[in-house]
Structures are given as C-alpha cells and as structure tokens.
C-alpha cells in the first residue's frame, strides 16, 4: 500500500490528511492520474510531489510503504 498526504487547501478539498492506495508499485504520474479521477476539484498539477520527504519527478517509481505527499505552492516565512 502507498500512503498519500494532503496539506493546507488540498487537505480541505480531500477532507482528510491522508489516504491509502492499495497498490505495490506506481509511477508518480500514475498517482496523480488516480487522484485526479477520485477528486476532480483537486489541483493536482499545481502541486509538487514528494516521496519519502524528497521532491521527485513524474517518472519516478513509488513502491509499497512509500509515503507520497502533494505539496501545493509553499507560503512559509
């Protein structure tokens, strides 16, 4: 299973801080497509993707027990 985290506005849209996808391997692109299909209002393409707390590319592979996070444009400081 792959854990997906949502923050800030994305958390409010999804209605949860995290969800689980029952797969053992996906690309980053697969995860994005899956989320778009589940949450049509979620601005997936405006978010960066982090896997295990590092930013990744669309073609990177996600494995079971990895943690994916959608990172909307940051506004700290």
């Amino acid at each position: 299973m792959i854990k997906v985290l949502f923050f800030a506005e994305l958390e409010e849209i999804v209605g949860a801080r995290e969800l689980v996808i029952e797969k053992s391997e996906m690309t980053v692109k697969d995860v994005k497509e899956y989320l778009k299909s589940q949450f049509p209002n979620l601005p997936v393409d405006r978010a960066m993707i982090a896997v295990n707390e590092e930013y990744v590319e669309e073609t990177d592979i996600i494995k079971a027990n990895d943690t994916v996070a959608l990172i909307p444009p940051v506004s700290g400081g």
Binding site: A8, E9, P43, R46, E57
Partner: peptide, 17 residues
C-alpha cells in the same frame, strides 16, 4: 484564504520550485 497561489497562477513547469 490559503496563501501561496495554490489555486491561482503559478504552476511548476519542472515539477519542482
């Protein structure tokens, strides 16, 4: 409002800032 342009104008063309 959540700041940081989250639903507005700035996508990340390379996937990273």
């Amino acid at each position: 409002k959540w700041m940081g342009d989250q639903l507005e104008k700035t996508p990340y063309p390379t996937g990273k800032p």
